[in-house]
Computed example of a mutant assay.
Amino acid sequence: MTLKDKKLCICIPALKAGGSERVAAELANYALSLGVEVHIILMSDQEVFYKLNTNVQLHIPKFKKGNKLVYYLRVIWFIRKRLKENKLVHVFSLGYRLIPVLASIGMKIDHSGSHRTSINRGWKPFKLSGVKRNIFDYFYRTASNYSKMHTKKMIYQTPEAMEHYQKSYPNADAVVLPNFLREIKLYNTDRQKVVLCIGRLSPEKGQIYLVEAFSKVNYHDWKLIFVGDGPARNQLEKRVEELGLTSSIIFEGFKENVDEYMQASEIFVLPSLHEGFPNALLEAMANGLACISFSSNYGSCELIDHGVNGYLVETMNVDELAKQIENLINDSNTRTKFQKNATEVLDKYSLDKIGKAYLHFILN
């Protein structure tokens, strides 16, 4: 099937820094390079973090948030108008999938979606209680069921996610497609004695377990560096101060040059309690780091072959995490083996392979 002259519409809440947002931007730019006319419809007016080709047609709602219900109704109408004006029939939704489906009631739209989170997570957009919560839950379930019935195609990041969710989409074709790698930027830097963790600092990302584990490691000529920011930063910094490790555990904040940090480190740890298919881990492996991840993340289990290209650790097991970090610090041969084997992801998860599979599935 030729992709040239096809039209692709990507619907996503925003294009801020994040995994789904990165996938949307990369897929849009790649599709455009293959001759596809690409539209991205956002559901909020937020700063666009990712660089888009100037020929990607970006649609941003320019109205202020007020009452959430009224706001989402306006977003639904905004999306509907853009679909009609641009004669868009292939819609790929990344997040808040029911909104584009509701926006296209009565229209002939081929809706595709993708589960981007762990099977343990769900969306709760309103903080309500009592009768209001019951009323909202009823209408939300009704709208959600309608959305699922009218979704034609679903992309799952792991076989486990597909097994868990597929029955909820009775009319949808399904396929397992992992995330694809972005372009890796090369820096002229030497690896240092650094254990690296990159991501949003928030409770579900599990950085507190990494802090506790690192405090048990006996090689404190090594540093633990966190790249990223978020609501858990103050709590993490306070705990580091209590442990007396402010010179060994460093918080760099948000950085754009993450590849430089990766190429200047030896070990990468993903302590998330739940992930879909973790971009940070994939990129760390592409950058040749020896990686450790909690085993509850299905995406991590797809990427890491325990003992071959990394270690999988029981989730929230601080002692085991500390042991495996210390193993890699102490055993340079294993560390080097993991680093070498990890880079095999460069070919397996390339944009040309995975991105093209995305487009053929969505636009077929």
Rank of each mutant, 00 (worst) to 15 (best):
S147C: 10
K148S: 09
F139P: 02
Y138L: 13
R141Q: 13
Y140T: 04
F136E: 02
S147A: 15
F136P: 01
W123N: 10
K153G: 05
F139E: 02
Y165F: 15
G130W: 03
T142C: 10
T117G: 09
I135F: 08
T151A: 00
S129D: 13
S129N: 13
I135P: 00
R133I: 04
N145H: 14
F139K: 00
H150C: 06
P125L: 05
A143P: 06
R141D: 13
Q157H: 06
E160I: 04
P159I: 01
S118T: 07
A143D: 07
E160A: 11
P159V: 03
K132C: 06
G122E: 11
M149G: 00
M154C: 03
Y156V: 00
Y140Q: 05
L128R: 11
R133Y: 11
M162D: 09
I119T: 15
H150D: 05
F136T: 00
Q157D: 05
K152N: 15
M154W: 00
S144A: 08
I135A: 07
E160V: 08
A161L: 08
N145S: 15
S129C: 04
V131Q: 08
T117M: 11
E160M: 06
M149F: 10
I155K: 00
M162Q: 15
G130D: 04
I135M: 10
W123A: 05
T142F: 15
A161D: 11
N134V: 06
Y140N: 11
S129R: 11
I119H: 05
F126C: 02
A161N: 09
K152S: 13
I119P: 06
M154R: 01
F126G: 03
N120G: 14
K153H: 12
P125H: 06
F136K: 02
G130C: 02
F139A: 02
V131M: 10
F136M: 03
F136L: 02
S118I: 02
Y140C: 00
K132V: 04
Q157E: 14
T117K: 09
R116S: 03
M154V: 04
K153F: 08
M162R: 14
W123M: 07
K148W: 07
I119E: 08
Y165C: 03
Y165V: 03
A161G: 12
E160D: 09
Y138W: 07
K152Q: 14
T151F: 00
P159R: 02
Y165L: 09
E163V: 09
D137E: 13
S118W: 03
Y156M: 01
D137M: 07
K127V: 10
N145W: 15
R141E: 13
A143G: 11
S144M: 14
D137P: 00
F139W: 09
T158M: 01
S144D: 15
P125R: 08
F126A: 06
K127I: 11
R116W: 02
K132D: 10
M149E: 13
R141C: 07
R133K: 15
T151C: 04
M149W: 09
N134G: 00
F139R: 04
N145Y: 14
S118Q: 02
Q157M: 13
I155L: 01
Y140E: 08
M149T: 09
G130R: 03
T142W: 14
